[in-house]
């Protein structure tokens, strides 16, 4: 039922407006250093945007850790533009119905530049492998008053929460279908939502404390999900109910 609705919504995705906002931001001189972000290395070389999202998260030597796109953008805004990372990440997600945040807009545009690209999250560096292993451990980690883990809802195929079909994130197919569709415009919230938002909101529904934007746990979970999805074809920003 929702899948047909989603298909219908696909025509004229409001995420396109957010993508345009992000494209402008990428080349605009901003921050105390008055520099554009376009020198930022998203993993494929300084300023290379095409295909970058499809191979994130990955290890960045300059930062010494594994980063997903959103974490990397916050790092570059600090490094290149001189904006404080804590200020950039203080409110990473927009309030329902309001204009997308800079991080959301940039993420939407950069993800869009990976449309049609094969998801290929690297697993060569030891820290990338460690992030995958930690992500897998956290995926199965049951905690909180409801004893929930990610696996509780996302380790079987063709199951539903009420009418919403749950992806089986332990399979390549299930992980790829999820990974390829984020970021996405969430119609029920009137907002573009990113992968970091998805992780944070899942933790809330798990009855856990607040998952911190760009934290090691969030990036590890995304590394596990992304690398499991390897081989899928990116098709984001998507649209969801």
């Amino acid at each position: 039922m929702f899948s047909q609705y989603r298909e219908m919504l696909g025509e004229g995705n409001p995420a396109e407006l957010v993508e345009m906002q992000g494209e402008e931001l990428w080349s605009a001189a901003r921050g105390p250093k008055n520099k554009p972000l376009s020198a930022c290395d998203l993993g494929l070389g300084a300023g290379v945007v095409a295909g970058a999202y499809a191979s994130l998260p990955r290890y960045f030597k300059d930062a010494g850790r594994v980063m997903d796109l959103e974490t990397r953008l916050a790092w570059c805004m600090n490094d290149i533009q001189g904006l404080s990372e804590s200020a950039v990440t203080a409110r990473p997600f927009s309030v329902q119905g309001q204009t997308a945040t800079d991080l959301e807009a940039l993420t939407a545009w950069i993800a869009g530049q990976s449309r049609g690209k094969v998801i290929s999250v690297p697993q060569k560096h030891a820290k990338e492998q460690a992030a995958f292993a930690e992500g897998k451990r956290l995926f199965n980690y049951r905690a909180g008053p409801y004893d929930f883990s990610c696996a509780g809802c996302h380790s079987q195929s063709s199951k539903r929460i009420r009418l919403t079909v749950l992806p089986n994130l332990t399979t390549q197919e299930g992980a790829a279908n999820a990974y390829r569709s984020w970021p996405a415009y969430r119609v029920s919230q009137g907002a573009l939502r990113t992968m970091q938002w998805r992780m944070v909101d899942c933790a809330r529904q798990q009855r856990l404390p607040e998952l911190i934007f760009g934290s090691p746990a969030a990036v590890s979970l995304l590394t596990y999900l992304g690398a499991t999805a390897n081989g899928g074809i990116m098709d984001a920003p998507g649209i969801k109910r």
């Binding site: 930690e134 008053p145 009855r207 404390p209 607040e210 090691p216 969030a218």
Partner: peptide
């Protein structure tokens, strides 16, 4: 590293990250 990735919010404290034997 897990507790460093979360912060207490509302009624959900960091103690919720500690697992029981069953969990």
């Amino acid at each position: 590293s897990l507790t460093a990735s979360y912060r207490a919010k509302g009624q959900a404290g960091l103690d919720r990250l500690q697992q029981s034997e069953m969990q």
